[in-house]
Write a protein that binds this DNA or RNA. Structure first.
Lengths: 207, 207
DNA sequence: GTCGTATTTGACAACCCGGTACAGAACCGC
DNA sequence: GCGGTTCTGTACCGGGTTGTCAAATACGAC
């Protein structure tokens, strides 16, 4: 028996995430978050324990959304695994959508991986952020490696290649496109890079 | 006939760069720069026009050092071009040295490309920084593409491959390792990624 | 309807930041 | 030695930032 909170935590965290992505962590003030979310300072502190708490919870929500992508796009039968991998790589360069019904990249500014941006900005001095970011990386990397194994079983990728190494490489390319995008290059260039990476995947030798 | 400045501008810019790399732009205060360089606020403002001016000049100095690497490591005869490319990629994941006699990466924190870090943090709202960062990218990318062409002439890389596309891809991998490094992965992992990328370069078909 | 509880709101104090102004010091040319 | 000019260090100012608090508010249980 008490007053219920009058806001949707997910909506608040999305708005905060957008703010962090566009202005960075240190470039975002509590007032900015307050304005972006409509919540007062007091409510923000009570519900999320301040700026840092908002960041951690926003990253946790991002992790959940991020992990959804590989699950729906990469899992499946061995047949077609290579095509699924191809489709996933092409989409991954455009970022992770804020919600299921929101297009992935409203502006390129906020297209870069949220976790990657935070890890580069403050990960070195914030182990918790670094760990969360690496979790984001690991969950996708594991899924990609599994998809590579599936493609290998289907005879579409050289069975001698190490699937984990390939997954590391492919994900490194994806993260690299975040940086290249920050340089000002357009989506077509990033897509081209992803295509090049895919094209170089080791095919099985035809005897 | 006047008092000469009592500091070495290069040394000051190096110290400022290190500070920016470890704390980010918005995470670094003028007092931090003052402490790191030993200069007073007044001198800093007179010589470099404040925090933003320090950043721009530090990035310009970084650009000069960055451009030196490819020139000394990639240029040369067609014979051995592939080996030079290999050596360059392996070194590039360890970062750009602050000075010629300083080892490249004292700590992994500051190993990520300075330009990439700044572009991701403030490039979206600071066109000048974005342009400078992209210049850093372009100068290396051009050199790598030229080295790829040399390797193609020497018969070490598939002549049908587009050297510019390959250069984009390789440099994207290098930038991606900055992010992966920020996740906490060690130099051995980053080296492994670079090796994987190199191993996947398209070799000429043996008829 | 009334009461208790949790949320909300707005304001507040302490602090930090960037940029400037000013006084003192150091150096070079003469 | 001496003057002029530039550099150096420090104090200062307006503005912005963070974290907290007390009063006002809204809702549900009884």
């Amino acid at each position: 028996m008490a007053r219920p909170r009058s806001f949707d935590p997910d909506h608040v965290l999305h708005a905060a995430e957008r703010q962090f992505r566009t202005s960075g962590y240190n470039g975002t003030s509590v007032d900015d978050i307050s304005a972006a979310t409509g919540l007062g300072r007091g409510s923000l502190y009570a519900a999320f324990d301040g700026k840092h708490g908002v960041l951690l919870q926003a990253m946790a929500g991002y992790f959940a959304r991020l992990a959804q992508g590989p699950r729906t796009m990469l899992d499946g039968p061995d047949e077609g695994a290579l095509d699924r991998l191809h489709a996933y790589l092409l989409r991954a360069v455009h970022g992770v959508p804020l919600a299921a019904d929101v297009p992935p990249a409203p502006d390129r500014t906020a297209a870069a991986c949220f976790a990657a941006k935070m890890a580069l900005e403050i990960g070195a001095s914030d182990p918790e952020v670094q760990r969360l970011a690496n979790d984001c990386f690991s969950v996708v990397r594991t899924a990609v490696a599994e998809c590579v194994r599936a493609a290998q079983r289907n005879g579409d990728i050289d069975p001698d290649a190490d699937p984990d190494d390939l997954a590391y490489l492919l994900l490194t390319v994806i993260r690299g496109t975040d940086v290249v995008g920050a340089y000002g290059h357009g989506p077509d260039r990033l897509t081209s890079i992803a295509e090049s990476a895919f094209a170089l995947l080791p095919r099985p030798r035809h005897p």
